[in-house]
Design a protein around this nucleic acid. Structure first.
Lengths: 191, 191, 191, 191
DNA sequence: GATGAATGAGAATTCATTCAT
DNA sequence: CATGAATGAATTCTCATTCAT
């Protein structure tokens, strides 16, 4: 049989990497970062402990990689058009999308909320909370400015908090949370 | 010479207990439960590691004690009157009080949010999240019912999420968060 | 009321001392020396931990005191007459007495056997196993010599082992062990 | 290069396991279970403390493993033939074998006697003392029944105690104990 | 690339003992 | 005499990380 080309190797590598990250995300979300050991991840991902270190420099690096990928996926989903101005439809879409993400990426959200609460963990990261949230707030603020809301900055902050809060409550208890109803209500009130 | 009376011992014990709990709360809030070691707590509280175990049966017990005390303090502050019906003034008072608590008990809120995200930790507890939150939601729902809001249950859930979200954002970044403005806006919109 | 005389104090002290020793013996026998803490002893004896050190210099000293007392009680019971010669009746009496002791002082025997198995513990003691056992063996050897047994020294050693073994089995499972029957058989065969 | 095959790993594991068990047995026998620390075992076995836990889940598991292996070796040595009936020669062989074992497996016997004295330790085990001893007693009882001894059950119990007692005395002081002579005497009297 | 044995730093916990009162 | 708070050393155990193969 022909030896594998380097691209093939690259693919395999990438697959393994994803496999590790997904496994780790599940465990981190379920049990917390500190309470998840490399051994558990390796066992669940069906690789050896040593191999982990072939893909990530350590546990922190793994966490960082998961986070970065998660945020990139989030950003790709949002940012509907690049003109930086939100129409009513786009805002609705944005809210819908946010709720959809909460559902699809529940594990990621869990991790996101859990780590958000630990500033000491954030210090290890290459990006800050503000970098991530600020653009969204700005978009909303502009939206409310255009709509003539009295204090658009505070309004945006409040809506931001609302979305965080819903996410927070939802991922903690997804089965009982009336996500659909809440979503409708949010759109009705704040778009 | 006569030995210390049991009251004297009782006082000393209670003081030490509080000292340990306060120190631990600060560290838990700053660095997370798992990332805080008994050694750190002991060092910061200027006691020996061993003494901790004279007051708490272990790290979990310490956490539980902090939590119980925190919730008791919360409950005492709330519960405006016992008729179980919220007037407009009482609801305003409730919101104000919630925000005041967030400010006063910032460390406790941090811990509360952090642990809320780890169901596995909750299992150790004698009380569940629902026990705590449900009465508040019920009060709000009744309030909105009386005011003729269309879907009072969902409305209450949304406001609950909003307060969580604000708390969440505030305790994470208290210096820059415009808590006063947000508070005013919340009262304006939801009372 | 008149102040206590020093004899009265002495009596109280002696009572307390006994109380501590008895409590400790029970716990040592039930759970082993290492697995019994000073706290447990103090709690069960209803005194403070500190007071223990008023009566014994430490845990080892307590053990030693228990042992010494136990052996003294044993010796007093034996050694029927001082001529150093065992008649048939005296030997029977000796065996009977041994069995009686096993039953009365079950806790002490447990401790005795348990510690006998740990030479490292014996090193702390002021007396050695041999000091204790040798005189008994000598008496028996003389007895068998007089009776014309072929190898009286070995015979004595064997009977010593037999008594140890019975004690060993009996204290381990006193409820089911047919002590009476075994006793009769031993006397029949070896006196 | 290819990774080690699983057989190679298996061999290494088994060797290490034995090495740890042997070292631990020596220390347990010399100083007792409670007085032997994992650190001591690791130091004597020239491995790190952590490695122990790669082979045994904890100190108790290690003890259990040593015990099980010890008993299995014992059982293999005995059980002369499977008809369940003891001839005179077989009984002699059984006694001889018992004494030989006492000598060869002195450390194991020490541990066996030491732990026998602590029922609390036995509770952790998967087997009970009775399971182990009962078959031997039964064989002896049958033997004495056939020989027309008056009370064969008690006779067997007495001989069992005798063997225990000899083992007990011998392992405690092997250098001075006249094992050969005692053995001859036992066979002469009880076979 | 891949394995898992091995390490070692540190975590939680226990407990004999001391000591101020 | 008596108390029990306080200490600190030792102990069991965990786990991220390294490394020979």
């Amino acid at each position: 049989m022909a030896p594998k080309t380097s691209e093939q190797y690259g693919e395999i590598r990438e697959q393994r990497r994803q496999q590790i990250m997904n496994t780790a995300l599940q465990l981190f979300a379920a049990n917390g970062f500190s309470n998840t050991s490399i051994s558990q991840i390796a066992a669940k991902a069906k690789i050896s402990k040593g191999l982990m270190y072939n893909y990530f420099t350590g546990k922190d690096d793994l966490l960082q990689a998961i986070f970065e990928q998660g945020f990139n996926e989030m950003f790709e989903m949002f940012d509907p058009n690049k003109d930086g101005v939100l129409t009513k439809e786009e805002f609705t879409y944005f809210i819908e999308e946010t709720f959809k993400l909460m559902d699809d990426k529940r594990d990621f959200y869990k991790l996101y909320f859990a780590l958000m609460m630990q500033p000491s963990v954030w210090k290890k990261f290459r990006f800050s909370m503000n970098d991530i949230v600020a653009p969204f707030l700005k978009l909303m603020e502009d939206y409310y400015t255009k709509r003539g809301v009295k204090d658009p900055g505070t309004e945006a902050i409040m809506v931001g908090a609302l979305l965080d809060g819903i996410g927070f409550n939802f991922v903690y208890n997804p089965d009982l949370y009336p996500l659909e109803k809440v979503k409708k209500l949010v759109i009705e009130r704040f778009v």
